[in-house]
């Protein structure tokens, strides 16, 4: 394997549609819950330990060879908000396209056939990592990093937040990203014996509630 493939996959410029999504930051900014770097950090920390953990475990389990169909159903059960399910599938479809062009693989072709409108993005992320020759922990790192980098870069655009402050937020979260990635891989390894119930199901009520309200905004910058 090439560890550098991880940099390609985790790069914010990887053309898989992430730039149009704020990870809930636009809704939180609109509601006045994110106003500065400090509240952005608290937001990212909460998202990391909930949606980030779940995504990372799904991605790691996909790398370990758990069937995508099972993981996709587990992702559905862990995503009560239909707006978030739709966003996850859109992003999954876009990532499928980008990954197939980048790391052609029969598994990704099969995924595109099975889910023409997209599987949940973390499931695709795991299969993309697998196609790139990466390991479960690499996919988990990608997922946890995306769970905080998306809201951070969106907040820079939404609040004109100093980009250095936003980047410092990500750096401060790094030790927690390490821990959550490890936790996700550990859970993913249990899926072989215990089934997808072994995957974490950590939820964030306000992310789910606000995602629905955001989807109904008549005017917004981000898709989610």
């Amino acid at each position: 394997m090439s560890r550098a493939a991880l940099l390609v996959l985790a790069d914010g410029r990887f053309p898989a549609g992430g730039h149009a999504h704020s990870g809930g930051a636009e809704a939180a900014v609109g509601a006045g819950r994110i106003t500065d770097a400090e509240s952005l950090e608290a937001f990212c920390r909460g998202r990391l330990h909930t949606a980030g953990l779940v995504s990372a475990a799904l991605a790691a389990a996909a790398v370990l060879g758990v069937p995508p169909r099972e993981l996709d159903a587990a992702a559905d059960a862990r995503t009560p908000s239909p707006a978030l399910r739709l966003a996850a599938r859109k992003l999954g479809r876009q990532l499928t396209r980008a990954a197939r062009a980048t790391w052609p693989s029969a598994e990704l072709d099969a995924l595109a056939r099975e889910f023409p409108k997209g599987a949940h993005q973390p499931v695709v992320l795991g299969l993309a990592a697998r196609a790139a020759g990466l390991e479960a922990v690499d996919a988990a790192y990608c997922a946890v990093y995306e769970s905080v980098s998306g809201p951070a870069s969106a907040t820079v655009r939404l609040l004109s937040l100093d980009p250095f402050d936003a980047t410092a937020v990500l750096a401060r979260l790094a030790p927690e990203l390490d821990r959550v990635a490890d936790q996700a891989v550990e859970a993913a390894r249990n899926v072989a014996d215990e089934g997808t119930d072994a995957l974490p199901a950590a939820s964030a009520p306000l992310l789910e509630i606000a995602a629905e309200l955001h989807a109904a905004w008549p005017v917004r910058l981000f898709a989610s």
Binding site: G24, A28, R33, I34, S39, A42, F43, C44, R45, G46, R47, L48, H49, T50, L53, A74, A77, R78, P80, E176, D197, P200, A201, A202, S203, A204, P205, L206, L207
Partner: peptide, 20 residues
């Protein structure tokens, strides 16, 4: 549906923050 929520002292970070 499979949903878990952990709050209070010792819960993972951010539970009382703007995302949760």
């Amino acid at each position: 549906l499979d949903q878990e929520l952990t709050c209070g002292p010792g819960a993972p970070g951010g539970w009382d923050g703007p995302a949760v």
